[in-house]
Amino acid sequence: MTNLSDGGTMEIAQKTLLAKTSRLPAFGPFDVLFALILAAGAAYALHAFGEYMDIYERAILVCTVPAAAAFGWYWKPMRVFLLACAAVALIAVGLYQGQLVRADEVFLLKYFVSSQTAIMWMSATVFLSTAAYWLGMLARSTFFERSGTVLAWIAAGAGFTGMLVRWYESYLIGTDVGHIPVSNLYEVFVLFTVLTTLMYLFYESRYATRRMGAFVMLVISAAVGFLLWYSFSRDAHEIQPLIPALQSYWMKIHVPANFIGYGAFAMSAMVGAAYLLASKGILTSRLPSLQVLDDVMYRAISIGFAFFTIATILGALWAAEAWGTYWQWDPKETWALIVWLNYATWLHMRLTKGLRGAVLAWWALIGLLVTTFAFLGVNMYLSGLHSYGSL
């Protein structure tokens, strides 16, 4: 067990850091305006598209408003991000004029804001952001570090806008085809990229350091690499109708909750890798302190564990409705339980046993391998009730 506290100075510094990152922001007039804009948008969506929604989908939409407003208050940049993505998506919707064929005819759609083009921009800027963060860290360049941040924001915005436009495009194909774009590997890898990038940017702003970006963006780049391979080798970007097993309102909340968990676990693993290098004297002067890395790793796993727990419960409720039982020891369910137990034990060892340092960093890094197998490996090598997600 490694004790990170080295005398009273370290303990005071750590407490000061925790107090700073936990402080709630002030509530101002722009927060009220943001909430009103969200409410107006939800009201318009209910008026224009309410006939296509069941009562559960309407409830999800309504509940999204206070949740997004609260998050926008807690993290101010999210207000600009959401409004900008919504504005660009609305421009794209207007350019389509109800005809999907215009995606290849209108300049802005073809090269910028159709779903596939926006996702390609996301992919390119993720790679560029990763390179900028690494250049910034190795060359100690503030310019490249800031460029990495800007490019990461652009990547997240392009990906989220692409998802919103893809949602609309699916309805242009047919009302029976239209669905929220979280139904296959292609779509959920876009979701993973957006969520994990935003999660990293949140911690970057909270801890006022860009020095974790080089490591966290690596795992996001790996996800984008898989996304591109999967898209070009399987034509996965083509919008397909939902299979009956996925035609449920549960999918709209179960999948995003799951991928907040996956993104948080991936981020914690990369922060753990940075911790291990810094603890060995490698890149020590170019990385945040061990205290910061340890705290970010802990907070990411805590958030991931909370959302993964919620997703598992939602999945059980969905299973009860679809298959008549909450749990069947399907390979996907079994490995989800393994992932849950892994991080539950991680948190238990830290919170009740006081474990710190390299052991937990290695644990977080290995945990990513377990999580990756639970998500991809099960689809590739095992079969069961979740086989509709296979490669």
Rank of each mutant, 00 (worst) to 15 (best):
Q14N: 10
K20S: 14
S22V: 01
L24R: 15
G28Y: 04
V32W: 14
I37S: 03
L38C: 09
Y44F: 13
F49C: 01
G50S: 02
R58P: 00
R58C: 09
I60A: 04
P66D: 02
Y74N: 05
Y74A: 13
F81I: 10
A84T: 14
I91H: 03
I91F: 10
L95K: 02
Q99L: 09
D104R: 09
E105F: 04
L109M: 10
T117H: 06
M120W: 15
T125F: 15
F127I: 15
T130V: 02
A132F: 10
R140E: 12
S141H: 07
G162A: 03
L164Y: 07
R166T: 08
Y168C: 03
G178E: 01
T196Y: 04
L198M: 13
L201Q: 03
E204L: 12
A214C: 09
I220R: 06
A223V: 13
S231H: 11
F232M: 05
H237P: 00
I239L: 07
P241K: 07
A245L: 05
L246F: 03
Y249L: 00
M251C: 00
M251I: 12
A273I: 14
Y275C: 02
A278V: 06
S279K: 14
K280R: 15
K280Q: 14
I282V: 15
S289W: 12
D294N: 13
D295H: 14
V296Q: 11
A300K: 01
I303G: 02
G304N: 01
F305G: 01
A306W: 04
G324F: 02
W335F: 15
I338K: 05
W346G: 01
T352V: 11
T352W: 15
T352E: 09
A364H: 08
I366G: 00
G367W: 11
L369M: 11
T371Y: 00
F373E: 01
G377E: 04
L382N: 08
S383V: 10
H386I: 01
